[in-house]
Structure formats: C-alpha cells, structure tokens
Design a protein around this nucleic acid. Sequence first.
DNA 1: TTGTAGGCGTTATCAG
DNA 2: CTGATAACGCCTACAA
Lengths: 338, 338
Amino acid sequence: MNIYDISKQANVSIATVSRVLNGSNKVHPATRKRVLDVIQSNDYTPNAFARSLGLNSMKTAGIMCADSSDTYLAQAIYFLERELRQNNYASMLCCTGYQLEKKQNYLQLLLSRNVDAVFFVGSNFIEEIEEQNNYLYHAAQKVPVFILNGYLSGKNIYSVLCDDYMTSYDLTKRILDAGSKHPLYLHRALSYSGKNKRNGFRDACFKHNITSAKNRIYSCTGSLAEIKEFIFHLEKDLHITFDSILTSDDELAVGAVKYALASRRSIPNDLQIAGYNNSLLSTCCTPELTTADNRVEFMCMTAVSFMMQLLKGKEIPSKTMFSGNIISRETTKPFLNS
Amino acid sequence: MNIYDISKQANVSIATVSRVLNGSNKVHPATRKRVLDVIQSNDYTPNAFARSLGLNSMKTAGIMCADSSDTYLAQAIYFLERELRQNNYASMLCCTGYQLEKKQNYLQLLLSRNVDAVFFVGSNFIEEIEEQNNYLYHAAQKVPVFILNGYLSGKNIYSVLCDDYMTSYDLTKRILDAGSKHPLYLHRALSYSGKNKRNGFRDACFKHNITSAKNRIYSCTGSLAEIKEFIFHLEKDLHITFDSILTSDDELAVGAVKYALASRRSIPNDLQIAGYNNSLLSTCCTPELTTADNRVEFMCMTAVSFMMQLLKGKEIPSKTMFSGNIISRETTKPFLNS
DNA sequence: TTGTAGGCGTTATCAG
DNA sequence: CTGATAACGCCTACAA
C-alpha cells in the first residue's frame, strides 16, 4: 500500500495525497476528506524511508550512554527521550559500555542510520588521550554533537554541563564547616566530571588548611560489599582516620553507610557522609543521604532545546554551564551559614 | 557525496561501488581496492534512507517501556539493546508513561519510522479492558510484536515472560514454612504480572490455611516515606498484625525495611520481608533484601533471539514462560526444605 | 485547487 | 567481472 494506491482509490493525483498527508492548506476540504477516508480505511502509513530520502532526515536523534541501567544515566535517558519526543523526534539508544572501541562501533551504528544529532551522556566519553577523541570530532563532521556533563571543544560540538567543581567544593566546605577535620574522598574512574568533583574536594580542603588532602583521596570500585570492605581496609590496615566521607556518586556513599552501620559509628555525629547525583539510592538507604543534585532534567531540557534551535539554523553556545544544588538529608550535620 | 561521485572518481559504475559496499565477492580485487580507497579518502557513508528504501528495513527495533529510570525496566532496556546491537540492529527507545493515550502516540511514532519489530517491556502494556488492547493488535498487523513479562494472545504477537505466579507462590510458601503466621502483601497497580504475583501469594496462604488472605493484601503507592507511613497506618489505625511483608517490587520492600527500622522491629526474627525483581535496591538497603529474580537478562536474550528467528522466516512460539529464582538474603529466616 | 514529472541515493536484475 | 537501468515511495517545483 503506497501513495499511488491511495491516489487511485481517492481519484486524485499522488501530489494531492501528499498534500493531505503533510497538512498543506491548498487542498479543497471535500477532496481532503475523500483522501483522508481512503487513508483511514486502508490504515495507510507513509513509508518513512522514502519520505526521509527526500527530506534527508528521519527526525531521529542518537543517545549514547555507557549503561542505561546506571541510575544517573537512566534518568538522563528518560528526560532526553521525553524532550525529543515532544519535539517529534525519535530516540535511538546506544549503551556503549566503557571501552573506546565499542564507543566507536556504536557511533558508526548511529551515523549509518543518518541520525540528525548525537547526544553523548556522561563525561566518560571524553578520553584522557586527546587523540582518542578523534571519533567525536569525526562524528561532529557529519552531525551536531552534544556532550552532556562533559566538555570538549570543537566545531559542531556543544557541551552542556553542571559545574561539578563548585558543587563539590561547596559540599565539602559545608561538611568541614560543620566540624569535620579528617575528610575522606572516594571516587570512581576519573572522567572529566570526576576530576572536577575531586578537585573541588581538594581545593576546599586546602582552603581549610587541611594540607594532607592528597592522602585522603582514594579510587574505589566494585560492589557495595566491596566498597564497605575497602573502607575497613583504609581504617584497619592503612590506619587512616576520618570523620567524614565524600564520594563521587551515591552508590559509593551507600557503601560508606554500610561501613558505618557495620562498624557502629554513628551518623552524622561520629561520621558524616555525602553522596553525589541525588539518585533513588540516596533516599533508599537509612539514614538518607545528603547528596549533590546536578540537575539532570534541566541539563537534558537545555540540550534538546539547543538542538532544536540549531536545526532551525540558529546559533547556540558551545559551552553551557550551570550550578548544582546541595540536598541536605540525614548523613551530615546541620549546615552552618558561611 | 553519493554513490555516483564515488563511481566517477573510481572510474567504475555505481553498480560496482554498490557491490563493494555490500561485500559482494564478484568484484575484481584491484577494482575493489580502487573503490575502497576512494570511499576512504572521501569518508563516504552510504545514505541510510536510500538504502532502507530499497531494502525496506533500517534494521531497527522499537523498545516501548513505561519509564527508563525504573530500575527493572532500565535493566531490560540495557539487555535488549545489547542483544539487538549484537545482531546489528539499532534500538529506538520510547518511554511512554502509564497512560493509554501516550502509549498509542508512541506506538505511532515507532510505526511511522518503519521499525522492524516492537518490544513492549512490562505487563503494564496489557490493559484491563480488552478493547483498549486494540493498539497492540493494530501494531501487530504492521510489525511483529514482542511482549516481555506480559501476555496477550494474537496473530503476530509473541510473549516471553517469567512465571511470576509460581515464583511468588514459592517465595510466600518458604516464608510461611519459616514460621510466619500473619503475612502481609503490598503491591503496586495490578498489571498482568502484578495479578499473578498477588495470586501466588494468595494461593500459598490458602494452602497454609491462612483463610483471611484477602484482608492481608493492600495496594500501596508513593515514595519510600509514604510506603513506610502506609504500613504504620495499617498497624496503628487498622490494627492489623503481621509478621512478614511480601511485596510486588523491591522499592516497596525497602519501604517495609524503613518501617521496621523506625518501629524497632527486628528483621527477620520479628518481621520477615521480601522484595521482587532483585534490583540494585535489594542490596542497597540494610539488611539486604530477600527477593525474587525474574531473570530479565534471560528474558531479553530469548526475545531478541526469537525476533531474529522470525525475521529469518522461521516459526517461533507465541508464548514462552520460564521460572524465576528466589534470592535469599538477610530479611527472611533461613528457608526450610519442603 | 489539482496534476505532471523530476529527483532523492540505493539495491538488484539483467545483459554483456 | 562489469555496466545500464528499473524499481523503491515520497516530496515539490512548475504547469495547468
């Protein structure tokens, strides 16, 4: 069933059918109705490929993320998809994992589908070694590239991100102001945003004359149980003392809570804890986590609205940064005014 | 840059370029190399729309889910996408929410993109009122429909699901065997699988001569805090006694744990709790949840492999059911052999 | 307001 | 092994 079949049944030309399909107003109401009826009764849908071929767009955007089951990324996907949909764009999802090669393969998959734009969600898409970012520049030659919560400078590349440095700095400052003398920082792999968070912690410590900040920063991977064990390891084996634990994501903070419960240290009096991301996990554990909200929804809405602007031919900023919020819950002492 | 440009530069016809592009072996190695070089140096990618137009497929499947940030659905999306990708299919993601109208709109979006198949993840896509399932039958007329964790009978509709009834029955039975006399069941909206879980609970109670099972089943919505309050409400206001709480998902169970912690009831001696889904939440809370694993990964792998079979013209079962696993953790007493 | 015809970039079927 | 040419189904000037 194609536009010719419809045109025959309705006794008009394909041009008229096309006009009806695309809501052109230069069609006689009676004709329009006749055509519409035929379309209805045949349950006809125009062929997307043929249409796209002429228009050179299928109104589809690509979303690249490392892992859709990561709570933070899952949220981003949700908001991106919602915004795109509201602008009549479909979303092609790619969960790339963390290996460069896979990222490249996936990008190929998207480009081979002629998407209208690509969103890279999470700063893990920015590689340490500059040359390894070539795949991003390559993508940008074919299609607008949006980097969410990461930053890369280049033609046709647009970054939208939370100021994780300041947010982390503020969060650390408040915990120190509330009396912590020996803060600890746990983080995952050091992506672009990961470094900013860590630097925020480090500089806030420095400002508070905590000189040995370097010995208080640790990388930590694995499951919740492993995180808990790792903290025990720091305490028992390395004899590190600490009265607060800041982290680069909520899961690490949940691990810290598990440590506190297991070692009977009271939260927040004996040990303050802070997460990052304001994910579901932060309210799921008891006591509920103080955490940083990097406003995923806002970020996604901004990015999609920029995309729409760009596709309309308008100019948009190459880097957009906004500040995060600190969500104060039960794992930190009351914040003081500063 | 199109196939004509390449053909000119390489001094061959477009047919030959096309052959090279599609890996036909009927091309002289020297010619192939010449063409390949031109393609390389121009960074040429064939136009997806033109190609799809001829082939009538863009190798893309649609994934419909209510909410990609739901931990269970997020996992399903991850596995589906991974499997599809491995078969060289792209994934179009739609987060529909729970309203019928939105589901229909989204389906339209997918169909208008001429996807090769549609996966509906979660039994919430099966509506109570049979007529409201027309959108699914309608979809099935155009494209194969896969229902994951739900069941609907119809031409071109294929269901892959966990036997939630038996899983829930077994889980309940074990908790009763372990000594519970007054079980409580909390559930969300009663979807297809929701009903099966509830019925499993109900029948297991009946088998144990707990006659008033009906008064022990409650619908419960809202945030973790609200769930906790609701249980307090059942206890204080409605004077319901209970020594175990089974739930239709892990989040409800986390709420139950929060209730237990707040009311100082000891888990599992004084109160046993069980979740459902084996999500990240189940290990995030302390104590860790006993829960049911409905094997999302297996379900997704099965469904995608069926899709591949079907698209190759083979026949596949219209309903595939497998059993779930019970994951025993800290919120229930040791299970007895039965 | 309506119809005709050309173009979008491939793939595939024939001849050669 | 290679090349010409007809689909594929739609959109859109341009003509009427």
